[in-house]
């Protein structure tokens, strides 16, 4: 059984069909990628899986449980955590605090505990702090821990979002165009981080524009175009697939030219 099972997923916005009848199986432990040209419906697809959009029809199962139409925070609590194409960092908070917020799901305690501060709560706060610094070191932002998060350069903001998502201890991590706007070096660093995350037995689904990056690190790739899944396969299969070439370069003739 795959960790994520998507069946017949469809989303219509009035007349526009953003996603049409998409089936997808993502096995546990894999590094999966979803590619496609602009407007192919990739982010819509992600938004439905993570609960930020309700599908028009179709089902999504995560670890054998139906999550279709569940609220975002409940989906996150099950271990399906996402990042955003437009980074959603917490302004007015430091880099470390952003990751500490990420520990929300992995910790407990509300108003009462915050007021009384029993020993377990104080230990937990110390652990949260240590965990945040550990994750920041993991993505190479350890030195910037006390900086205001939104003042980081763009590339580092993306890495911070990844660190923050990891703090929520995901089983499945959805990365929405993590390399968008990064330079070659930053993309290299990111690719390395994604692979290291995946080796910690965290399943990763990656939406990407950068085909070179995806074909290098992904185990399996699905291709969307005009809201439909046109094919799926290993990176080598995808690179040779005529429809993929057509989707990216316009027409098959153009590809041969």
């Amino acid at each position: 059984m795959a960790l994520l099972e998507v069946r017949g997923l469809t989303k219509r916005f009035d007349g526009l069909v953003a996603n049409s009848d998409i089936d997808l199986d993502v096995p546990e432990g894999s590094l999966f990628a979803v590619i496609g040209p602009n407007g192919a419906g990739k982010t819509t697809f992600f938004n439905m899986i993570s609960g930020f959009l309700q599908p028009t029809s179709g089902t999504i199962a995560f670890a054998g449980v139906q999550i279709t139409n569940l609220r975002q925070d409940r989906i996150a609590a099950m271990g399906l955590v996402r990042t955003f194409q437009l980074v959603q960092l917490f302004g007015g908070m430091s880099v470390a605090e952003n990751v500490e917020v990420g520990c929300h799901l992995a910790t407990k305690g509300g108003i009462g505990a915050a007021l009384v501060r029993p020993p377990w709560f104080r230990h937990q706060e110390a652990d949260v702090r240590a965990k945040a610094l550990e994750l920041l070191d993991f993505v190479g932002l350890g030195v910037q821990a006390e900086q205001e998060a939104t003042l980081l350069p763009y590339g580092q903001q993306r890495l911070l979002e990844v660190a923050r998502a990891l703090a929520a201890k995901p089983r499945l991590l959805l990365l929405d165009e993590p390399a968008a706007g990064l330079n070659a070096h930053e993309t290299e660093v990111l690719a390395d981080i994604i692979q290291r995350v995946n080796r910690q037995n965290i399943t990763v689904i990656l939406i990407e524009h950068d085909v070179a990056l995806v074909t290098r690190i992904a185990h399996r790739i699905a291709v969307l175009d005009f809201g439909r899944k046109i094919t799926e396969g290993t990176p080598d299969e995808i690179k040779r697939h005529p429809e993929v070439i057509a989707a990216y370069l316009g027409t098959e003739e153009a590809a041969h030219a």
Partner: peptide
């Protein structure tokens, strides 16, 4: 921290299970 996260971006907060 959860309150302050919400003040900045509800999307980001919800994605982390808040």
């Amino acid at each position: 921290r959860a309150l302050r996260a919400i003040s900045s971006t509800e999307l980001g907060a919800a994605a982390l299970g808040i």
